Computed example of a mutant assay.
Amino acid sequence: MKQLQLQAVGLDRKPVGEPIIVPFSPTELSFAKGANYAEIPIPGLELPLLQFVRGEAETVSLELFLDASASTVPVTELARQLYKLATIVPERHCPPLVRVSWGSNFPGPSLGNSGQAENGFTAVVLSVARRFTLFAEDGTPLRALVTLSLKQYMSLSDQVSALNLQSPDHTRVHVVQEGETLPLIAFDAYADAATWPLIADHNRLTELRDLTPGTRLELPPLGVAP
């Protein structure tokens, strides 16, 4: 059976030292992903518009069971190695990156936005909690539970290549509806209410407060001057 491994790596993703091999596989893992939105108030509307600001790194939580009978490495040493994943490396002035791997199908398409199966992920360790639960008569720890909290790490170049962002590349036509405002139309067209001046300038609008229903407005590509 393939065992879970945690390997400290540098920014170049090359291994640093030996991997930490966990003797018992975790019984469960928790993945969490979030997104950050800003609220944009529009006069006359009951609810503010939500403007996407940025994504948030995915977090992973897992609990590892350590037992002296299942490994030639003492429980205290395994716990110490896991603890060091959250401590400063003198050469880098920060804790190391960690590559987590566990068989060819782990974690699958859980992390990232590519939808492709992965056989591991790179993260930083946010916290390490150690709890010793069994001791020998001389006080030597024989069992421990180590809880790890990790956060997904991707370099700037990796994120840009993975996003493959696209913008509208052609002019579209929008017919004004009752109660619509330029910020609302801009938000629907570009997901950014602050781009309404682009629509106003392109259509040479002079009356910005009262849009007549039925008016046809051209929505130009972003970045195109009128």
Rank of each mutant, 00 (worst) to 15 (best):
M1F: 07
M1Q: 12
M1T: 10
K2C: 15
K2T: 15
Q7M: 03
Q7G: 01
Q7A: 02
L11I: 06
D12S: 04
D12N: 06
P15A: 05
I20P: 02
I20N: 02
I21E: 07
P23K: 02
P26Y: 01
E28M: 15
L29I: 09
S30I: 12
K33L: 12
N36C: 12
A38W: 08
A38H: 11
A38I: 09
A38L: 10
I40D: 09
I40E: 10
P41C: 06
L45E: 15
E46C: 13
L47H: 12
L47F: 15
L49Y: 02
L50G: 04
L50W: 06
L50T: 07
Q51T: 09
Q51G: 05
Q51E: 13
E58I: 04
T59K: 09
A68S: 11
A70N: 13
V73I: 14
P74V: 05
T76C: 12
L78Q: 08
R80H: 13
R80N: 14
L85R: 01
I88F: 07
V89M: 11
P90C: 09
P95F: 05
V98N: 00
V100G: 00
W102L: 04
S104T: 11
S104L: 14
N105P: 02
F106R: 03
P109H: 07
S110W: 07
L111I: 11
Q116C: 07
A117G: 14
N119G: 08
N119I: 03
G120W: 00
F121K: 00
L126R: 10
L126E: 14
L126G: 11
S127R: 08
S127H: 08
S127A: 11
A129L: 14
A136T: 05
A136D: 14
A136C: 06
G139M: 05
G139D: 03
G139Y: 03
R143C: 14
R143D: 12
A144F: 03
T147A: 15
T147K: 10
L148M: 06
L150W: 00
K151A: 13
M154W: 05
D158C: 06
S161R: 13
A162W: 10
L165G: 08
L165E: 11
Q166N: 10
S167F: 13
S167H: 13
T171Y: 09
R172I: 14
H174T: 05
H174G: 02
V175I: 11
Q177S: 09
E180F: 06
E180D: 11
P183W: 02
L184I: 10
F187T: 00
D192H: 02
D192F: 01
W196P: 00
L198N: 00
D201P: 03
D201K: 12
H202D: 03
L205R: 01
E207Y: 07
E207T: 07
E207G: 05
L208V: 04
L208Q: 07
L208W: 03
L208I: 07
R209W: 09
D210L: 15
T215K: 09
R216L: 10
L217W: 01
L217P: 00
L217Y: 01
L219P: 00
L222C: 06
G223S: 06
V224A: 10
A225Q: 12
P226D: 04
